[in-house]
């Protein structure tokens, strides 16, 4: 699978937030989803390091465990944060495209 170079948007926390924007997911589903939409493989240590940080920062929250797997979902703060990050990416992308068009 080709790996996209997403720059700072390939940061594991952003990828996880983007993955959870679709629906709540547990660890394995997040890993699979990120591989599908971003072509980035997050190692298990990196994934859970990022999940732990996002949870500590209040950007995601755990849902009741389903058997041994625990799904996570975005909190209101997480949604606002992701919105801000993606808007910034959108602004950056449109500015870059405008400049390319003028070449």
């Amino acid at each position: 699978m080709d790996t996209l170079n997403l720059g700072r948007f390939s940061d594991p926390p952003i990828l996880i937030l983007a993955s959870l924007a679709g629906s709540p997911k547990h660890g394995y589903a997040i890993m699979e989803d990120i591989e599908t939409f971003a072509g980035v493989h997050l190692g298990p240590g990196t994934l859970y390091g990022a999940i732990a940080r996002l949870e500590t920062q209040g950007l995601i929250e755990p849902l009741p465990a389903e058997e041994r797997r625990r799904p996570y979902r975005l909190t209101a703060t997480g949604i606002a944060f992701l919105q801000e990050q993606l808007t910034s990416l959108e602004t950056f992308a449109s500015m870059g495209l405008q400049r390319l068009a003028s070449i």
């Binding site: 660890g27 298990p44 732990a52 041994r68 797997r69 625990r70």
Partner: peptide, 10 residues
């Protein structure tokens, strides 16, 4: 906190 779900994922 995470071991159980972590093992389930692995």
């Amino acid at each position: 906190r995470y071991e159980e779900e972590f093992l389930a994922m692995l």
